[in-house]
């Protein structure tokens, strides 16, 4: 039997090994290589890492990226939890619930780049938002901070990644037996006690999964920062992509390895709090 199971798992395992495992090993290897203007020189050096850690730019990039990650994580968590809670516990019948859930997920299947640039005419100096504010008499000068700013970056992140929070939390919540909630209400728990004592603990797998997605996505992003900050802000991967653009692969690889370790540490930290695999398998 296990031979059949190995055979069945082989295509996926091999594809991942070739296109994820091997490249990962290569990135780690190259991060210890030297380089010149034109090529990679396969000798073992630590200069890539020494330069990386010796540069104050590295730390400010990480500070900036982590700042985005934390803000976006908090916002998407609030949105993800609230939207899922509404859909699961307040929307009946089931078909309407499913339809509204699909409304939330459809953008996931469309282009991220398009969804991101769709904020440009919206937030710009002469954008819809400013025009509306002026028309309503709330401001008389267009707000400048809306586009090409941290604000715009965060907005775009939340727009792109909140689905990754909603879907797993929705799945966890949908599996909560309504009788459990009713029992808590019968036991005298108020609305917010029920959320704190019942819904949050029972949704923690979904919260953890969503958090992993959002943190990993923000930490790994470069294109949102590049476009939405209008070049005024940067992230770890954006700096990396600039190195790649000038073919400096070894320092880019070193930067990638450090980033991967940081992201892995964050994910392991989340998994420490919630054992996702055990609950996924169940």
């Amino acid at each position: 039997m296990t031979r059949l199971h190995h055979l069945l798992a082989a295509p996926l395992a091999c594809l991942l090994l070739v296109f994820f495992g091997v490249p990962l090993v290569l990135v780690v290897t190259v991060s210890f290589f030297d380089f010149d203007q034109f090529d990679i020189i396969p000798t073992f050096v630590l200069t890539n890492y020494l330069e990386l850690f010796g540069s104050s730019l590295t730390y400010s990039l990480y500070a900036n990226t982590v700042k985005y990650a934390v803000i976006v994580w908090a916002l998407t968590l609030v949105i993800g939890f609230t939207v899922s809670y509404f859909l699961v516990f307040h929307v009946r019948p089931f078909l309407l619930q499913l339809a509204l859930f699909l409304v939330c997920t459809v953008p996931f299947w469309t282009s991220n780049v398009i969804r991101m640039i769709s904020w440009i005419p919206f937030l710009g100096r002469n954008g819809i938002f400013n025009q509306s504010l002026i028309a309503l008499g709330i401001v008389d000068q267009p707000l400048e901070f809306l586009l090409f700013s941290d604000f715009a970056v965060v907005i775009a992140y939340v727009h792109l990644f909140s689905l990754f929070m909603i879907v797993p939390i929705f799945n966890s919540m949908a599996r909560i037996d309504p009788a459990v909630i009713e029992a808590a209400v019968d036991a005298g728990a108020g609305r917010f006690r029920v959320i704190r004592e019942i819904v949050v603990p029972l949704s923690k797998t979904g919260i953890a999964m969503g958090s992993i997605f959002v943190v990993a996505l923000v930490m790994g992003d470069f294109f949102v920062v590049k476009i939405m900050s209008g070049g005024q802000s940067a992230s770890v991967v954006l700096a990396m992509s600039n190195e790649i653009a000038v073919l400096q692969y070894p320092p880019a690889a070193a930067s990638a390895v450090v980033l991967l370790l940081v992201v892995t540490a964050m994910v392991v930290g989340i998994l420490r709090i919630v054992d996702v695999r055990r609950e996924l398998a169940g």
């Binding site: 190995h6 994820f20 490249p23 990993a216 790994g220 990396m240 992509s241 692969y249 980033l259 994910v267």
Partner: peptide, 28 residues
């Protein structure tokens, strides 16, 4: 099956690895 945990974690990490980094590896 033997190796199922390894494949599972490989899939999860393949999902959360920064995309550009993965692209760099494949390019290399």
């Amino acid at each position: 099956f033997l190796g199922s945990t390894l494949v599972f974690y490989m899939a999860i990490f393949s999902l959360i690895i920064p995309g550009l980094l993965l692209g760099l590896g494949v390019g290399l």
